[in-house]
Simulated assay, not measured.
Amino acid sequence: MNYEYPIDETWTTEEIIDVVNFFSLIEKAHEKQVRSQEIIMLYNRFKQIVPSKSEEKKLFAEFEGASGYSSYKTVKRAKETEEEFIKM
């Protein structure tokens, strides 16, 4: 990993940790299997921190540009699947 996770300097330390954990799990979903419910749970926490859809899209685009991993597609798949685990 030679990139940084997108963060907002106005977030609290706890919020930064939660957002980093979310993006880290997205990364893991592309490299290994992860639990669908864990993605949904961390996404819900992400949405508490970033309620704005436009800000979410901006952060997702920054992350995808840096990593090549689509947060949107990963969350969508986790929500739509009935499987316990997903791998992108």
Score class of each variant (00 low, 15 high):
41 M>L: 09
4 E>T: 14
81 T>N: 07
20 V>N: 05
57 K>P: 02
4 E>Y: 13
1 M>T: 13
81 T>H: 10
4 E>R: 14
59 L>E: 00
29 A>K: 01
11 W>N: 00
3 Y>E: 12
40 I>R: 14
71 S>V: 05
25 L>H: 02
68 G>A: 15
2 N>M: 13
78 A>I: 01
10 T>M: 06
46 F>I: 02
88 M>S: 08
39 I>P: 01
36 S>A: 12
87 K>E: 04
42 L>S: 06
18 D>V: 07
41 M>Y: 07
3 Y>R: 09
53 K>G: 04
69 Y>P: 05
3 Y>N: 08
66 A>C: 11
88 M>C: 10
35 R>Q: 11
74 T>K: 01
9 E>D: 14
4 E>C: 06
82 E>K: 13
2 N>L: 13
5 Y>L: 11
65 G>Y: 08
36 S>L: 03
11 W>R: 00
87 K>R: 11
51 P>I: 02
4 E>L: 12
76 K>Y: 09
31 E>T: 08
67 S>F: 06
46 F>R: 00
80 E>L: 11
5 Y>C: 08
85 F>E: 08
20 V>G: 02
49 I>V: 14
54 S>L: 13
72 Y>K: 09
37 Q>D: 14
6 P>H: 14
69 Y>C: 05
39 I>F: 07
32 K>Y: 06
67 S>D: 08
50 V>T: 01
6 P>D: 15
58 K>F: 06
35 R>K: 14
48 Q>M: 12
86 I>Y: 07
8 D>Y: 06
32 K>H: 09
12 T>E: 03
71 S>T: 12
24 S>M: 05
77 R>C: 09
18 D>I: 08
26 I>Y: 00
42 L>V: 02
70 S>P: 03
36 S>F: 00
22 F>H: 03
57 K>W: 06
38 E>V: 08
35 R>D: 04
19 V>G: 02
72 Y>I: 08
75 V>T: 09
76 K>G: 01
81 T>V: 11
11 W>P: 00
77 R>P: 00
24 S>P: 00
32 K>A: 12
3 Y>V: 14
4 E>D: 11
13 T>V: 12
59 L>R: 02
72 Y>N: 04
17 I>A: 15
5 Y>N: 06
40 I>V: 12
52 S>N: 08
34 V>Y: 03
30 H>G: 05
76 K>M: 09
30 H>E: 07
69 Y>K: 15
5 Y>D: 07
87 K>H: 07
65 G>C: 11
49 I>T: 08
86 I>R: 02
16 I>L: 10
73 K>Q: 15
57 K>C: 09
74 T>C: 07
50 V>N: 00
40 I>K: 13
41 M>G: 06
76 K>I: 07
37 Q>P: 00
15 E>I: 01
56 E>N: 08
30 H>V: 05
71 S>P: 04
23 F>K: 03
20 V>F: 05
87 K>L: 07
79 K>T: 04
1 M>F: 10
85 F>C: 04
54 S>M: 10
32 K>L: 12
54 S>Y: 13
